[in-house]
Design a protein around this nucleic acid. Sequence first.
DNA 1: ACTGCCGGTATTAACGTTCCTACGTAGCGC
DNA 2: GCGCTACGTAGGAACGTTAATACCGGCAGT
Lengths: 340, 340
Amino acid sequence: MKKRARLKDIAELTGFSTNTVSLALHHSPLVAAETSAAIWTVARQLKYRPNQLARSLVNQQSKTIGLVLTNIQNPILTRAAEAIQKALLGHRYATLFATSNHSLEQEKLAIETFLGRQVDGLLVYPTHHGEIAHIVEAQEQGTPVVLLSGGRDASIDAVAIDSRVGAQRATEHLLSLGHRRIGVIDIAPALGNFEKQDGYRDALKAHGIALDRELIVEAGRTGLGEGYAAAGVLLGLGAPPTAILAANDLAAIGAIHRLDEMGISVPKDMSVVGFDNIDLAAHVRPPLTTVSYDADLLASRAVERLLRLIEADVAVETQHQVEFVEPELIVRNSTARPKG
Amino acid sequence: MKKRARLKDIAELTGFSTNTVSLALHHSPLVAAETSAAIWTVARQLKYRPNQLARSLVNQQSKTIGLVLTNIQNPILTRAAEAIQKALLGHRYATLFATSNHSLEQEKLAIETFLGRQVDGLLVYPTHHGEIAHIVEAQEQGTPVVLLSGGRDASIDAVAIDSRVGAQRATEHLLSLGHRRIGVIDIAPALGNFEKQDGYRDALKAHGIALDRELIVEAGRTGLGEGYAAAGVLLGLGAPPTAILAANDLAAIGAIHRLDEMGISVPKDMSVVGFDNIDLAAHVRPPLTTVSYDADLLASRAVERLLRLIEADVAVETQHQVEFVEPELIVRNSTARPKG
DNA sequence: ACTGCCGGTATTAACGTTCCTACGTAGCGC
DNA sequence: GCGCTACGTAGGAACGTTAATACCGGCAGT
């Protein structure tokens, strides 16, 4: 295997010391112009590319951050991932990437791997909003962390959308249309992610409607298949709902598919609200009423926050804050007044 | 900022040399059992985590590979990305990730960044199947590369699905239903990705049907919006097609949305075939006839191939091969005989 | 008693950088 | 002609790890 060019190679060819070569390649004003020119010429010939690892070792920073997501089937997460990676590359940071697949073990493994590679910071969409001890530990050991979701407790910085308010507004919308029995398709709060259900309860309470736990269907994740299955469950109830609030658009689309199969028309016979406003939401039939937010904004805020933490070098002592991105309800055609 | 524990710290605390510590932590049989035990105890107390960068520097391998995709809006790519990352982590490799966003510049930047970080290999879904000189160069400089797409020329190894055959089968299906004017929504072949159109032509030729260039609508990428727009174009033709072949499922869904708006029923008035068989394909209305292939298989094959190249350390001299994953047509309800 | 070996540990150099300090030469003023 | 400064370049250590080699004491064999 051909070896890559090193400073030393350039040094030997030009007759200068590696140190001078290093300075020249950094455009240091200390080296004479012609020296610099000669060095650059040779460097280009050899296709010299600095070894970032060696650099990291002495600089004590890898210019790399780690991104851990639960999965990237959900388009809104992929979109965030893409935006994050792009924003980081703009700041000359590389992105190490891993998916936890909703498994705490895999999440820990990924974080461990990243820390071993001396990432300068971590961006994590945690599997379980409650179990973040391992993340806190990484932070305490000196690696800044920003979570991409989370409640209002602040042992770690977070930039997230306000799911609670989003869910509350979506429920509000259904209530204002006249719905009184509203089904929910959500991730199991055993995973600690109860913001959306809290928003749902908030809205019900404001209207003096009692919570019927039967109307809440939970699964380990919320994808197309889960939405499809959950819709079946809700329809099988003695008193089925007249509207469904899904934790994300994919679950909503899955649910609509099932309703369609059962001959139930959306929105005539049943209203459905999604969450995330993925591109697809506008293109399915019927176009989905959903909770929208700016994923790119979320990504860039999270990146900025993380970079600030890295620069400040105060991962630990800082007062952690949770920053929310405002959700907005987009009303399309999957919701209407209840029949009768 | 707290400093992370190093071998030297453990050495000082235990009284042994750093070398002995290193050996002990590697479970070397050379060190006495009690020495090893003492070292391990202290290591755990200090939460010692080896610095993989330092290790990489001396071992001359980073145990990291770089993954470059065009974008991850297309679910099939995200799925591959996830599978790839998982497979790599299983082999104790970390994944550096970047999206080129269909821009050659960004692709180059990403690869440059990765090479600087001494990745042991690259997995690239190239922006442009024709312009891969920069990728070949990386390979020539000693970094193994496996492409995730590509034609039959083999200056670089590739594991890809046989798009040509896939498109040919899809077209075949439409022809056998009786369609004679089949529209195509594809990415602009200016980007060098003409496999699908070639498959389409193959099928037409086999049936002795002349190619009508008017029926081929091209765009810079193939997403929902592009499908939506392209359907409009096809319908505006003097002699519109009776069926549409879309380069991927998202484009197909976008197209169906447009057809729906125009009051054209799928599959009664118009058949539509997608490509990729994303999860969604089964959940939209009507369920999509599409070309399916095993993305996970593709991912694991690509990873295996790359790891083999890395181990063999023969990035350059090896005879490069393109390995195809077979596509399969899944017939659902978006295709039917033409009217009348 | 000397050699040889062996288990256990230490020493040293190396990986490719960067940073700090040192060195040499030339020009300048006195 | 002496020291001073300025400029350009070189040397060395350091980052945290691994690998090759060196060392050292004790025991067995002759």
